[in-house]
């Protein structure tokens, strides 16, 4: 079992305060994590913000960073244990295969890890902003692990919490496939899934600006799907 397979929780910080105060008081001695035996000390542990909104108790998760590279996240404290990022992205459930709509908080955490943590190169700027907690997303599962995702806004969804403006068309907001899984048509699969989810819609939006990688996938898609050529728009 992996964190995403455990019973759903309301918050991601179960036991974290206890873990933190044990570290602060020195109650635990010489705790180490993973094959590189990174010491779990108060100095190596920090709160990693996962969502831009929601109650403070479930906006962040306790994380372990590398003592050599403070930007590198090694593990997360979930449901009373430390888990490596690769294990957090894994599943033991055979039903998690292909594209699955995100429902649980743990699945939302996976979207966050894929978009902001595991694919980030040292010194690289963040490609995506933090997602709101209620964002519509789908995860792509392959070989027992989450390997990609896309997020979208349905037509009529609120643009923000205050102006009352709504999306005039469904918009694909962000899309990502893990580097190790690229070049196998998975990006195309994500894009086609978005288009078929909203096949009744006349126009479909892709959020601006488009990355080079996404343009390459779009070129491939539109090269063979004439029906989509008049329907896909870059939107601001």
């Amino acid at each position: 079992m992996f964190p995403v397979d455990l019973p759903d929780v309301e918050e991601l910080t179960s036991g974290s305060e206890r873990c933190l105060s044990a570290l602060e008081s020195g109650a635990v001695e010489d705790q180490r994590f993973g094959c590189s035996q990174v010491p779990v000390t108060r100095g190596n542990v920090f709160w990693l913000q996962v969502f831009e909104d929601g109650p403070p108790s479930s906006r962040s998760v306790l994380a372990l960073r590398s003592p050599d590279d403070p930007d590198q996240v090694l593990a997360l404290f979930l449901q009373d244990s430390w888990w490596s990022l690769e294990d957090v992205l894994r599943t033991a459930s055979p039903s998690r295969t292909g594209l699955v709509p995100v429902a649980s908080l743990a699945e939302r955490l996976l979207v966050f890890l894929l978009s902001r943590v595991v694919e980030r190169l040292p010194g690289e700027q963040q490609l995506f902003l933090l997602h709101p907690r209620a964002e519509s997303c789908k995860l792509l599962w392959e070989g027992g692990a989450a390997v990609g995702f896309y997020t979208f806004k349905a037509r009529g969804a609120r643009v923000d919490g205050w102006s009352g403006r709504c999306y005039a068309l469904p918009v694909l907001d962000s899309l990502q496939v893990r580097r190790s899984c690229r070049g196998r048509g998975l990006g195309l699969r994500l894009l086609e899934d978005f288009c078929s989810t909203f096949q009744e819609e006349e126009l479909l939006g892709i959020s601006s600006p488009l990355s080079e990688g996404l343009v390459a996938v779009l070129r491939k898609l539109l090269g063979r799907r004439r029906d989509l050529r008049d329907r896909l728009y870059e939107v601001e």
């Binding site: 939006g205 343009v215 070129r219 989509l228 050529r229 896909l232 728009y233 870059e234």
Partner: peptide
């Protein structure tokens, strides 16, 4: 604001 993606690709804008 919106612009057609296929047209943009054809015109080399992307």
């Amino acid at each position: 604001a919106r612009r057609n993606i296929w047209l943009g690709i054809q015109l080399g804008r992307f």
